[in-house]
Amino acid sequence: MSSSEHTVTHVHRDDVASRMGMWLFLFTELLLFGGMFILYSVYRYNNPDAFHLAAKELNTIIGTFNTAILLTSSLTMALSITAIQRNNKSLSIFFQLITVVLALGFMVNKYFEWGAKFSHGIYPGSDELLSKPAGEILFFGLYYVMTGLHGLHVLIGIGLILLMTYYTVKDVITHDNYMKLESAGLYWHLVDIIWIFLFPLFYLIT
């Protein structure tokens, strides 16, 4: 009742609400991957040996390298928000672009990794893969679906961050209105968290 202005056309900006909405959306992402992790855990539980064998065929070095890249990109994303809060627009843009470059690097690695597997004839539905025991078919099925879905999220993230860079250049995102950038950041960190789990589950369990 404090405000006495008449009919306001727009509800006040509410950053807490925006963050809440974003977090709720992140839960849906979390559970989307959660469903996949459920699949993984059941099949791994039922086929421990096949998973063990199949995981050996993945390249741990590429995996580790990609983990490092993604963690670093999470860092630069967080830094870009602090930069904009401190009204350092160009530094924020710089950090955002670094994030995008790192994300692209991640995807390039992924491309070579998948490409190598494909050239060995290991991809869903291939004769080579179908001749293997069921547990290995499941492992690679999960591998392709889960890292593929994660890769899709990385691509969406790249688009999103580029959009934020555009907004920052255009001063839509400013030092006292950076909610959009923060939302993109939250999304990006979630993509990172998913990878934090994918990495050991696929590459390290040898």
Partner: peptide, 25 residues
């Protein structure tokens, strides 16, 4: 309602982030 809309919640300085990054690596 309008009083709470523009809240800047506290975030961290650059140093903290680098520290966390180092821990993660």
């Amino acid at each position: 309602m309008s009083d709470i809309s523009h809240n800047h919640h506290k975030t961290h300085g650059y140093g903290v982030y680098f520290l966390v990054w180092f821990a993660l690596m």
